[in-house]
Design a protein around this nucleic acid. Structure first.
Lengths: 349, 349
DNA sequence: CGCATTTGTCGAAACGTTTCGACTATGCGT
DNA sequence: ACGCATAGTCGAAACGTTTCGACAAATGCG
């Protein structure tokens, strides 16, 4: 396997000269450069990543830190991972995947001490996140997907949850709906300070307050059955509900089943808008869902770029980015139904 | 940051001794070992991954090679990636993600020459895969998810497509269905030699031949609209069809729409079994799908373990693994409908 | 024309490990 | 008592880069 020394020999120069030519660290005459690159070409030389990293103290590897839940990542996170990998590659970095045990802070410390990676992108940041505190304390470079408390000087990229909820409610209100509920993710996630759950909840409350409406919301585990039960519970308590906003994509099938079991159809009898989800999910349901779609790909990319900018000492264009979601109207939302008339019709029909 | 030299000083031994103690490369007296580990503890020392890799010529990093398609990975692949990362971690390896351009072989060669990784796990292997040929030629260690031609001595893990298709057909036959079609993935994938598409096709043909039935199958792009059209085309040509087997999960919603638009219901008027998919997908549809579910998590793990065994010179328990899929009966399959009677009823009703 | 700067290059010292050969005790068989 | 393997340790040479200081030649400037 060719090494830098063999290249230097063949080109008739010192190894340091080869290094300068390769990295542009110092000026090199055009003629020498030519000779060097020719030698490189002929030998098929590629710098040894580890040696380079050891000498330069920069491995050009970054890690993506993702939570090690039992049921793997959600859909949204997938596009995320691939786009992060692509973004890293475009910047000549490698991306390593570190799953972490949420409760084992020490593991994370160990990992950073190995000096394998120059920095980490932390996924699923919580409101008070011990990991962030630690990284900060040991001054290890990082960027975040999501936000946490006291983050004024930290780089992050997140979804603009507040605006997204507002857009969802506005869409429904535009169709005449007034009795709207919010179906959150699990109470556990909320109480753990999971950003999306906390922020959407707060946003919904505020928006309803602005509209002088009661804020009806409910937690729901991220699974079919929980969605089914949650919908029924919600309608038992608030029979006048005509629409739901939710970020709980896994519960949606359950909700649809429950609606179906009432002999209602979507969107004639009930409207549903799912926020922060993807087109693929939306099109998988029947009927196809009206959504507010996040550009998750963009998030992975931005998270990586934020980190790399920081590593290279480049000032980022924006240290903190809030991404909007795009409203895509499909077939799960429609005008507010007239339940009284519907009932009368059913009786006469 | 503490280094091996500082540990050696504090313990009053040579650096090489520390190395031996750490790796068990040579015998160390119990007493010295104690002193060394105490020093390590006190200093909070962790070996420098790059230095270790450089000196030992083994980075303990492996790469997962995934295709860089525009629409990102499918759902199935997600669990896959996370389980691979976990398996690597459990074996004290790091996993880096390399997306590759299918057409750029040179890029792959470059990557391997960087000597960053000890080996690669190749995803989505094709029947005649140039990448595999290259890796083989340069004798770079690898394992495969999927199979390719001439792979007798290569390690791989794949799904037992043939058995899976058989199980699907048997399930439908058990319900009385005889007119069954297979909805494949895109013709492009098939012609590119994409293993799953090729193998399921072949299996279906053979099984139908065994049953003395015509083998009706059709290619279909992996998207909603294509599923819709494919179903209609299929039923125009073969009006007696009562069931479909498919591995094209993205087309399924389209198929369901098309069925719905005929005023048919699933499973009363038509049965559908989706193979090599996941529970999450199955539960997302209405009605929940009868599936043959792959343990994708197991695949990622196995692929990684296969590679690591090879790297460590351990003989693998099994060099080649075929994973079965499990039949999960939900609500998209039912007894063969009696179309004639149904029609008569409709006329009289 | 002389002096300071810049350009282009070199050699050597890092970077933090592993590994090899060599050396001293120690215990063994004879 | 004598050689001999073995346990336990050391020092030094890798591994393949980057980076620093030095230096000669070329260039600019008053």
């Amino acid at each position: 396997m060719p090494t830098m020394t063999s290249v230097a020999k063949r080109a008739g120069v010192a190894v340091s000269t080869v290094s300068y030519a390769l990295n542009g660290t110092r000026p090199i005459s055009e003629e020498t450069r030519q000779r060097i690159f020719q030698a490189i070409e002929e030998l098929g030389y590629k710098p040894h990543a580890l040696a380079r990293g050891l000498a330069s103290k920069r491995s050009r590897i970054i890690a993506l830190l993702f939570p090690n839940t039992d049921r793997g990542l959600g859909f949204t996170e997938l596009e995320f991972v691939t786009s992060a990998a692509n973004a890293a590659k475009e910047n000549q970095y490698s991306l390593v995947l570190w799953s972490y045990d949420v409760h084992d802070l020490d593991e994370l410390r160990q990992l950073t001490q190995q000096r394998l990676v120059d920095g980490v992108v932390v996924m699923e940041v919580h409101e008070n996140d011990a990991r962030i505190d630690m990284l900060r304390q040991i001054e290890f470079p990082f960027s975040m997907i999501g936000r946490c408390a006291g983050m004024d000087d930290l780089g992050y990229v997140d979804i603009d949850f507040s605006q997204t909820v507002r857009d969802a409610v506005d869409h429904l209100a535009g169709l005449g709906h007034t009795e709207i509920a919010f179906l959150n993710q699990s109470r556990a996630a909320f109480e753990a300070g999971y950003g999306p759950a906390v922020r959407t909840h707060a946003a919904f409350e505020q928006i309803m307050a602005e509209r002088d409406h009661e804020s009806i919301s409910r937690f729901c585990r991220t699974e079919l059955r929980a969605g089914y039960d949650a919908f029924n519970a919600l309608l038992d308590e608030h029979p006048d509900l005509t629409a739901i906003v939710t970020m709980n994509e896994r519960a949606v099938p359950g909700v649809l089943h429950a609606i179906h079991d009432r002999n209602w159809t979507v969107p004639d009898d009930f409207s549903l808008v799912v926020i922060v989800t993807s087109r693929t999910i939306a099109e998988m349901m029947i009927p196809p869902l009206t959504t507010l779609e996040a550009e998750t790909g963009g998030m992975g990319r931005l998270g990586v770029e934020l980190l790399i900018n920081q590593l290279e000492g480049r000032p980022p264009e924006q240290l903190q980015v809030l991404l909007p979601c795009r409203l895509v109207v499909r077939h799960s939302t429609g005008p507010k139904p007239d339940r009284a008339r519907a009932k009368a019709q059913a009786r006469s029909g």
